[in-house]
Design a protein around this nucleic acid. Structure first.
Lengths: 91, 91
DNA sequence: CACTTGTATAAATGACCGTTCATATGAATA
DNA sequence: TATTCATATGAACGGTCATTTATACAAGTG
């Protein structure tokens, strides 16, 4: 899923993960619990996000911590959300 | 495809259409020719974009003219492109 | 009204995506 | 080293998407 930014963003769970680790790094289980997702599914999405370059990872002992790789990613998400909301009202 | 902004943006042809009618309105055949797409496929994508609120339409005689419904849509596209390029280099 | 032009729509198909389940790997600890 | 905890991976599935083909509709023109 390399270089497919929009593909990565086109999934609510992946977007939630980005918001979840936008300000603070978290390990896989924390993320999974935070979003009420299965560990396996969380790992799959994290891989997609990582391959796309949207997140970074760092191992600490058994755990692997992920965080969003640059702040503008969250800004774009927020702009996208605002735009989406605005467009919906238009109808 | 109502309210699915990212789904709409997650397709190169639809993004090209947005760029194509970002500054000036064009009719379906002009868009199709401009992007070298079949008329039918162009219409399908235009419907998706329209249902999402990303574009507006206006009939003039036989032809129907489409244009992007607000400038920020193109801005977001450009920000997305910049981010995507930046993330690719990172790898 | 018949015809032409411009656009939309419906069905079909192959490809891709998200999720789940089962299993593997990797690191720490007893 | 055997076990446990944390995470990753692979296969399989049902669903969705993009595209093509064929056809319908809508508006102007002869």
């Amino acid at each position: 899923m390399n270089g497919h930014l929009y593909k990565c963003l086109n999934n609510a769970n992946r977007r939630k993960i980005l918001y979840c680790i936008g300000k603070e790094e978290k390990c896989v289980n924390e993320i999974a619990e935070c979003l009420d997702l299965e560990q396996s599914l969380t790992s799959h999405h994290l891989k997609d996000l990582y391959d796309c370059g949207l997140i970074e990872k760092k191992r600490k002992g058994k755990r692997i911590y992920y965080k969003v790789s640059e702040p503008e990613i969250i800004e774009i998400l927020e702009k996208g959300k605002e735009l989406g909301d605005r467009l919906e009202k238009r109808c």
